[in-house]
Design a protein around this nucleic acid. Structure first.
Lengths: 118, 118
DNA sequence: CGCATATGTTTAAGAAAATTAAATATATAA
DNA sequence: TTATATATTTAATTTTCTTAAACATATGCG
């Protein structure tokens, strides 16, 4: 599994967003969901995903609950109230950032001389 | 100066894009331009900006030329032919990524039952 | 039965990248 | 002379990601 280099810095927000929408998800499910939503463009590495989940849990933004399904352990994560609040803020900030980025990536407008009255 | 956490991973591409458009820029100018284009949302830290410039130079994507202007040294960077090529690729990739990100951040569609023929 | 594949989590070592902060240097305006 | 703006460099620390492996189970295929 390899991920787009661009995802750096946005992974935390993506996880918060998915949990805000799905209430309960486990790590593997999150990675599958991101792959699905991105049409396979983004493939999370577990080495990146799980440490972020632990960190969010440590920060009190997520709570984990382990369940055994089909003989395998699954750790379901869900947002705490603080997590819900932060998800809103971060998603909004990231949306704004993508707009900004889009503007930066736009071809620079050709300043025509007429603007200057010429 | 502090930057948006989201810029991580995209800085290299932003620099390539600005140089593709402006032919010649120096570090300070790049940081000012990004701040301007982002309506002050993104403020590059020099500790992040300059090492990226050195790295791009080492990779043969940029060439630097020092000039003294008003008694102060300025290091102008411009793209090498490889840099020009990479700029095209990276900008295109990042544009695609922002579209993907937008989709992920979109509210999840409510799957209505009628889709299933109910 | 054995093997591959899919499902799932954990974690360690190393590399890459960013943050923070300070040092160096000059011009100009107040 | 003091503050602000311009401009680059770089070191220490922290954060984050990549890569890779280990551990564990279920299922489908030949």
């Amino acid at each position: 599994m390899s991920s787009s280099e661009f995802i750096k810095g946005t992974l935390k927000t993506i996880i918060l967003k998915l949990l805000a929408e799905n209430k309960q998800m486990y790590g593997y499910e999150i990675s599958q969901k991101v792959e699905e939503l991105s049409a396979s463009e983004i493939k999370l590495t577990y080495g990146a995903l799980y440490p972020v989940l632990y960190k969010l849990e440590n920060e009190g933004l997520l709570v984990a609950e382990t369940e055994v399904v089909d003989g395998r352990a699954r750790k379901y994560y869900s947002l705490t109230p603080q997590g819900v609040e932060l998800a809103k803020v971060k998603v909004s900030e990231l949306q704004k950032f993508t707009e900004t980025l889009k503007n930066i990536l736009l071809p620079a407008p050709n300043i025509s001389l007429e603007i200057w009255g010429a």
